[in-house]
Simulated scan of single mutants.
Amino acid sequence: MTANRTRGQKAGLTREAILEGAVRLVDRDGLAKLSMRRLGAEVDVEAMTLYHYFAGKDALLDGLVEHVFARADFSLAGGRSWQDGLRDYARSLRATLLEHPGLVPLVVSRPAVTEQSLRIMEHGLAELHAAGFGLRAALDLVYSLNEFVLGHLVSASNPAVPDTASVQEGHLTGIDPGEYPLISEAIRADRDREADTRFDVALEAIFRGFGDLRRT
């Protein structure tokens, strides 16, 4: 046993590997089926070994939230504009959750409270502050952007809230163009747009609005 590995830990097993195993479980079986016992089997250890890395299931769930946001890198390195940095961040966060939709309810309902999550937030606020935002405006921008991305994903995953594509596919039948000419015209105008266009349009509107809050 090495000096920096406590009793019960397994050589080669890391916190990140456990989180990746948890993501695989959620992808395959759903969030409701995630347990320490099942996760231990997924990463080939006894469930008790996991408690050397996570105090319990709540800590594991917090770690999964951290894992999602850590994959959505926000950087203004190389003189990038704050819009470019946040645009890539938002698209990366959306792509991660589209790839792992079972994590969406967890990220929506659980605050990011781990040390790593707080370091990510601290870094983002420092970058935006250096780009000319006051700290309150920077925090509002980060929260608004996260809420926009998550709200977009929740809406897209909710079958009770059809998008334009589903309208075009006939999920909302019986719309009379004579009675609802503006809806009908808007659907026709939207027919040839890329699937991500609405997301990008709203994203740019957020940036324009918050751009007015920068220090002059």
Rank of each mutant, 00 (worst) to 15 (best):
Q168S: 14
G56K: 02
P101D: 13
L203S: 01
F133M: 07
E185T: 08
T2H: 08
G170W: 08
G12K: 07
K57W: 00
L61R: 05
S92H: 08
V142H: 02
V161L: 14
S117C: 04
R28S: 15
A3V: 09
P162K: 05
E179T: 08
F207M: 14
L145F: 03
D212K: 15
L145Y: 03
F148V: 06
Q116G: 11
E204N: 12
L60C: 02
A189F: 12
E42V: 07
A95N: 13
E194S: 11
R5S: 13
G151E: 10
Y143C: 05
A186N: 11
G40V: 03
K10A: 14
A17M: 13
T114F: 04
V149G: 03
R94S: 09
V113T: 14
R80V: 05
A32K: 13
V26P: 02
Q9F: 09
R214W: 08
R71H: 12
P111F: 08
L106W: 04
G63L: 02
D212A: 15
E115K: 11
R7N: 09
I183A: 07
A189E: 15
V167R: 10
R38C: 01
Q9T: 15
V23K: 04
E147V: 04
N4P: 06
A3L: 12
A156V: 02
L60Q: 01
L76C: 06
A130M: 09
R191P: 09
E204I: 09
A77N: 00
D212N: 14
S155H: 10
T114D: 10
D44F: 11
R188D: 15
A165N: 13
G132W: 09
T96G: 00
M36K: 01
L139H: 09
F54H: 05
V161T: 12
I206L: 15
R80W: 04
E46Y: 12
V149M: 07
A47M: 11
A156Q: 10
Y143R: 14
R71N: 09
A130T: 13
D192I: 08
A126H: 09
L97K: 01
D192T: 11
A126I: 06
G12T: 06
A70W: 11
L182V: 10
E122H: 13
L203N: 02
Q9S: 14
P101V: 10
D84S: 11
D84Y: 01
D212T: 14
R7P: 08
D140M: 14
R215E: 11
G21D: 08
E20Q: 15
A77T: 00
M121D: 03
D88I: 03
L103C: 04
F148Q: 03
W82G: 00
